[in-house]
C-alpha cells in the first residue's frame, strides 16, 4: 500500500500529504533494518561511511542503489532476495533519504 502511495505521490499533490507520514514510517522501519541487517557496521549508523563509503545524505537513486546492494561489484557482500526483501530495501532507502545534511564545516571547529 505504501509503495502505491509513493508512486501516486509523484504525480498528485493531494497524496503527498498522506505519503509523507507513510514515508516517515518507512524511514523509521528502514533505520531499524539498516542497523539489524548490519549496513551500519561498514557504512556507519547514519550512512556516513566507515570501511564502506558514505551512502547518506544524498543516497543513490533507488534503482542504482538497489542494483548495487543486490550485486556489488567489489568488496561489499551481496544482500540477495533471501536475506533482504525488496520492501526492506525500499525502507532502507527511505531511511537514507531522511538523513539530513550535516552542518557546514565553517560553522564548526573543523572550519576554524
Amino acid at each position: 500500500m505504501q509503495r502505491i502511495l509513493k508512486t501516486a505521490a509523484a504525480v498528485t499533490g493531494f497524496v503527498v500529504l498522506v505519503s509523507s507520514s507513510a514515508l516517515a514510517q518507512d524511514a523509521e522501519n528502514g533505520n531499524q533494518l539498516f542497523q539489524a541487517k548490519g549496513c551500519w557496521t561498514c557504512h556507519g549508523t547514519m550512512g556516513q561511511g566507515g570501511r564502506g563509503p558514505k551512502i547518506a545524505p544524498g543516497p543513490l537513486a533507488f534503482e542504482a542503489f538497489a542494483a548495487y546492494v543486490r550485486q556489488p561489484a567489489l568488496e561489499m557482500p551481496p544482500f540477495r532476495e533471501p536475506i533482504l526483501s525488496d520492501a526492506e530495501l525500499q525502507d532502507i532507502h527511505a531511511y537514507l533519504l531522511s538523513i539530513p545534511q550535516p552542518p557546514d564545516p565553517a560553522d564548526t571547529i573543523v572550519g576554524q
Binding site: G44, T45, M46, G47, K54, P102, P103, P105, V110, G111
Partner: peptide, 17 residues
C-alpha cells in the same frame, strides 16, 4: 573537511570524523 562532517551529530556512537 567536508567528509569529516558526515555523521557529525551522531550520538550514542560518535563518528570518527
Amino acid at each position: 573537511l567536508q567528509e569529516a562532517m558526515w555523521g557529525w551529530n551522531s550520538t550514542g556512537k560518535v563518528s570518527l570524523g
